[in-house]
Amino acid sequence: MKRYGCLSFLLVLVLCLRLGAWASPLTVTAHADHEALPASASSARSIYQVESTWTTADAQPLRLEHLQGKVQVLAMVYTTCESACPIIVSLMQRIAAALPPELHSQVGFVLVTLDPVRDTPSVLSAYSVKMRLDPASWSLLSGRPADVMELAMLLGITYKRDRSGGFIHTNRLTVLNKVGEIVYRHEGLHQDLTSTLEAIRWAAQY
């Protein structure tokens, strides 16, 4: 029996090592920019510390700190954008659909318009209806142009007016943890959401 005891021990050891190796890539990618912080820690790295006030699609004022408590997937788009923005929104919808049920209440989606002059709250509201965005988890925000610039700067998003009155802009989904710190960036319009979902799952744990 001693022999079998040793064998079992070795078996368990080997299994643990394998599991450890499988688990580490996840931690590395999810720890994109910083060390793990419990949700109650100071928010020096939170983008919610900006003092701007925004208006939601149902014309209510909102300060970004109200987004705390949920993992947020945020993108900066505008409603008259023809090519890139619909893809961005569809990526976010796919993320929403791919989330396991227990995470639905823990993850929110935020669209901030780059064109607050044209995308008034009522325009955003109509857009939300058209794109079938569930108001329970989606926030569409309109703000002062200077505040839009400030938020874009924090997220590292650049944008610029083009000849047609629209914008050339960085295509990116930003995943914020429950205190508003950037934990992951999905760059460009590519369709592979594996790492993004992983990051959301990880951020939802804290």
């Binding site: 890139a84 200077a146 610039m149 874009a152 700067m153 590292g156 998003i157 650049t158 944008y159 610029k160 050339i168 802009h169 960085t170 295509n171 990116r172 760059e187 460009g188 319009l189």
Partner: peptide, 15 residues
């Protein structure tokens, strides 16, 4: 200036 970051074309992504 407010929009110093738009001094150049953003492109599809930062890279």
């Amino acid at each position: 200036v407010a929009d110093f970051q738009t001094a150049f074309s953003p492109g599809a992504s930062r890279g």
